[in-house]
């Protein structure tokens, strides 16, 4: 089954939600059809095989342990979006190139589309959702808002997470260091100049040109 053709960049938010709903429904059916075995829970370190049927996994997402059942081939991105309804990370290229799916694993940025969900167990997964707490927006997305640093917004959660990771690791980072941390993210709308404004604001530096 070719399962990577799901379109998630539809023209309107409404289409997008319907599409996602369809994916969730299809997933539920697939889960029922493959008859997951309750004894198949993953025990890391065993020499025995896991799958190909769905197995129960526990992921720590934004500080909370959540459980779901997935086949071993399901990526962290698809597990988050389609099984756990954590949709901040986006599926764009699905080939480790664009950065729309960027999340932090133990504080380091990775492409969630290119990590198996089963391998993300026992690690701290952090998504863009973690940057809005108790009605308060983190400084990074807030700077994006002020600088109007998005157009379609599809790349934005990935950029925000990548930028947050740089500033978490080095709160004194200079604008050039922050930009280096964004090498793995692409914005098709070309909002780089506005993002630059956001970066300079976050670094408390004036833009030279």
């Amino acid at each position: 089954m070719h399962d990577h053709e799901t379109l998630e960049s539809g023209p309107s938010r409404r289409d997008f939600l319907q599409e996602t709903g369809a994916v969730v429904a299809a997933t539920a059916l697939a889960g029922a059809a493959t008859m997951e075995s309750p004894a198949a829970e993953l025990q890391p370190g065993t020499g025995g095989g896991i799958g190909p049927n769905a197995v129960k996994i526990t992921l720590n997402v934004n500080g909370r342990d959540v459980q779901t059942s997935i086949e071993p081939r399901v990526t962290l991105l698809d597990a988050l979006r389609n099984y756990l309804d954590v949709t901040g990370c986006k599926r764009v290229c699905d080939r480790a190139t664009c950065g729309a799916c960027t999340v932090m694993l133990d504080g380091k940025v990775v492409y969630a589309c290119t990590v198996l969900a089963i391998e993300a167990q026992g690690r701290q997964i952090r998504t863009a959702e973690s940057l809005y707490n108790d009605g308060k927006l983190d400084a990074v997305p807030a700077a994006f808002v002020r600088a109007d640093a998005q157009q379609c917004g599809f790349c934005t959660p990935g950029f925000v997470v990548a930028m947050k990771a740089v500033l978490d690791a080095n709160p004194q980072a200079a604008p050039a260091q922050v930009e280096k941390g964004l090498q793995g993210n692409i914005c098709r709308c070309g909002t780089y100049e506005q993002m630059r404004d956001a970066i300079y604001a976050l670094c408390n530096t004036k833009r030279g040109n």
């Binding site: 993953l42 020499g47 025995g48 095989g49 896991i50 190909p52 086949e71 071993p72 081939r73 089963i118």
Partner: peptide
């Protein structure tokens, strides 16, 4: 992606026996 069985050995020797 075609579905697969996943193995997670803990030593290099164990990994090689699975190949």
């Amino acid at each position: 992606m075609k579905n697969f069985t996943y193995f997670r050995p803990t030593t290099p020797e164990q990994a090689v026996t699975l190949l």
